[in-house]
Amino acid sequence: MKQLRVALVMLVIGGLLTTVAFVMAFTTAEVQRFGTVTLSERIDTAFPLQEVTADGYRYERPWFSQKIFYFHVPVAEASFLVFGVAAFFAIRFLMTKRKEYDTKSRIAMETAIVFVTLTMITGILWTRAAWGVWWEWEPRLTTYFIMTLMMIGYFVLRNSIEDEERRAVYASVFGIIAFINAPISFFITRLIPSNHPVVFQSGFATSNLVPFILGQIGMLLVGYAIYSIRMNEERLEERVEIMKEALEG
């Protein structure tokens, strides 16, 4: 029960931090610029006038969709981290063969898939807003998609094996192999040409960094809280099973 209370507190703090980050992203954070916007009238603006054409006045365009960055990137990085936790417990399981590590690995993988799904949804919406298409087969999106499929494969594999020990061993090995995709997906935009923005490559203003860090801490707290609440549920389920067996016996 104490662990559940801690998880709840973390969930609330995480929720508050990400909300603060969201508000800051739209108020104090400096707006990034991307492309141009043509207006029929000349306006008094903080955005530089690029040129005057027959169509009107061409200004640098404020990059509104960049605001997704303050919650899309924290969710994505939380997904990598929780996936890493799942792989860590999978290694621990293979080393010790203790069932609790397999359970922890499975719950972490389940939490990671929640974050991966949300990363995909927020990412697709950003792609539509920024690139005008719902999907593009560019390196980051493709490797992240492969990673998602492998995570789904992890659960398909688990459900297809009946023997408990074999299931745990196969799932652990598969989980570790699947995790290799995480660093590939994370670093690929730095290694080969990609349309996907590279975070922190060209520096970051403090007004942008603060909401990002708050959002990142908040999202990690939410991730830990979800994992912890699910572990609590798992332990209660085990307790119910033991009690039922005791009553039947």
Partner: peptide, 29 residues
């Protein structure tokens, strides 16, 4: 920040996607 004020003055077509992303994120969580 003055650039933010400017942002809201301009017609931005991206807003529905950004807000939908945030909304879906929290409703789903």
């Amino acid at each position: 920040d003055p650039t933010n004020e400017e942002l809201y003055r301009l017609a931005i077509t991206d807003a529905p996607y950004v807000l939908a992303a945030y909304g879906i994120l929290w409703v789903a969580l």
